[in-house]
Write a protein that binds this DNA or RNA. Sequence first.
DNA 1: TATAACTTGACTATTATTGTTAGTTTAGCA
DNA 2: TGCTAAACTAACAATAATAGTCAAGTTATA
Lengths: 140, 140
Amino acid sequence: MRLTTKGRYAVRALFCLSKYTDEKPTPLSVVAKDQDISLNFLEQLFVHLRKNGIVSSVRGPRGGYRLAKKPKDITIGEVLRAVGEATYPVFCTEDDIPNNKQCPRADECVTHLLWIKLGKTINDFLDSTTLEELYQFKPE
Amino acid sequence: MRLTTKGRYAVRALFCLSKYTDEKPTPLSVVAKDQDISLNFLEQLFVHLRKNGIVSSVRGPRGGYRLAKKPKDITIGEVLRAVGEATYPVFCTEDDIPNNKQCPRADECVTHLLWIKLGKTINDFLDSTTLEELYQFKPE
DNA sequence: TATAACTTGACTATTATTGTTAGTTTAGCA
DNA sequence: TGCTAAACTAACAATAATAGTCAAGTTATA
């Protein structure tokens, strides 16, 4: 039950963006260097972050990315889900399973509700923690 | 961030064991049929459950496994950890990392404490939920 | 108009997962 | 005593997911 690099890198990259709050957008090359993450991999992540309204982009020279919302309005949960990180611990508890693919054991499976409860615990935490709060966690 | 089958199967298998509470041990063949899990895979899981004092074994014909403790004294967390399921979301927050392998970014990494807090949330839930409580979750 | 950025999609090496296969050892029972 | 059911052990393999890389564009603006 590990986060994948997609989720971990996305949070770090956005934290990095939130440090450059001047009006100019920040190119990914800066983020890549700052966080030691492959530029190409970052680009893939930011496609999804942009489509989910978490960042906005400016093309061309002097272009880059900006947070589309204030750090206090961006939750860790929405960032993880945006880049495809699963925030529910088992497949059969996902909200978005089409009915025809629902877990065939759901009815008799005693663990089903256990995992739902665990998933809710996880998501409650992730959705109530914002990018802004990362600064509080920062060691001095 | 998904549980692996090791963790999910272990919980289901132990729940199954808890149903057969008579003095006779239950062979894994019964559990395998009841929960539709491969016998060989179950055997691998039970090696670790036994070594962690969650079940006791009786070899030979009429042998099998028994819970070594009462269901109310077996937490979901200890079961998951016994079979090697990670209950912390990222590697660098594990308790048991040898010092020489500690995350090199730990000092400057703002996300470090975030993941620790998430891991604590998850483990608090898992360690306060027992096998016995699964019966409450069981749909009628 | 050249450059520095973003965009897209295909591809791949590595690793973890999820078992399988093939046995050995133990002990109850006829 | 020998048969058999069951736990135990270890090596192996198929599959899937992860973690990127690579290549070939498109767009905007200094």
